[in-house]
Design a protein around this nucleic acid. Structure first.
Lengths: 160, 160
DNA sequence: TATATTTGTGTAACCAGTTACATATAAATA
DNA sequence: TATTTATATGTAACTGGTTACACAAATATA
């Protein structure tokens, strides 16, 4: 099957990464809708994080997930609106909002986990013929974190 | 360096893919801004496609890039606003908009190509320790295209 | 103690994609 | 030929991320 992004090789790789990750995101959302879960894909990690650590501030979540704090605020706002999170103000530092799982969240998490387990199996299936993806992705992430795409490209431009 | 998404292994892989592709996207935008190019990352593929084929309709672009047509319409609208594209209505089929590169685009493309070449070198650098990424990504894409994430996960849920 | 700096949260405006719906034209069919 | 179906484009409303800016509270420093 012809695919322009694959044809152009190196020039298309980053776009293919985006296309694939988008497709997986929308398919996950579709899945939740079909099985009747009123949660969104990007809530998953916040649930897992709070299950592990009980209480976190917005900044802490932002750091753990390596995501900007406005992105976290948006996610958390929705999760609160759906009564999955409770937020208190820290007694010692009134700037901080301490976030915890609500009773509703705790009650529903076992069900969510069954769906997430099925999703993990799916990921495993999808990667059956991609045996090096974990190492290769890790090396890729490492390179990007050491010197950004922008900095590298500025340097490469000057070399020409 | 600790990373929650890496720690949770299979459960975090898809999110890592998104995080990486987002980071590359924003860094590319930052690059364009820094070097003073008034183009956006997702215009790249449309430029390449039209350089190759001269004239295409919106549906054709949508099919070539495997992207929804509303997404293409948005990109093309902006490119037209910046005078990089000209659109005519097809004489034999008044529904179709035929898109071509403008003179401004043709004049600037050599410059754009120097930046894109530098970007390709960057991609190569970033992948220096990810020797299997092309095959593994291709296999991943193939699996997803054959049976979607959603379908697979529904099946896996029933199995449990 | 008064001032300057850092930190935590929040908002606004933007880019980037999707699905769902609408509409006009072309093509197929009764 | 009249009607149905398919195709091409367009819009609206949504999710999901970013950077840039604002402001209050905490901390460091003069």
């Amino acid at each position: 099957m012809k695919d322009f992004l694959t044809e152009i090789e190196l020039a298309g790789l980053i776009s293919r990464l985006k296309r694939l990750s988008d497709e997986l995101l929308y398919s996950t959302r579709d899945y939740y809708k079909t099985v009747g879960l009123d949660i969104e894909p990007n809530w998953h990690l916040v649930f897992l994080l709070l299950e592990k650590t009980n209480a976190l501030t917005i900044s802490e979540i932002s750091q753990e997930l390596r995501m900007s704090h406005p992105a976290c605020i948006k996610i958390i706002k929705k999760m609160k609106k759906h009564d999955y999170l409770i937020s208190k103000t820290d007694k010692n530092d009134s700037r901080k909002r301490i976030l915890e799982l609500s009773d509703k969240a705790k009650k529903r998490l076992p069900s969510f986990h069954r769906h997430w387990e099925a999703g993990i199996q799916t990921t495993q299936e999808l990667l059956q013929n991609s045996p090096h993806i974990f190492e290769d992705l890790k090396a890729f992430e490492k390179e990007v974190s050491e010197v950004s795409y922008k900095e590298r490209t500025l340097k490469n431009l000057r070399k020409e």
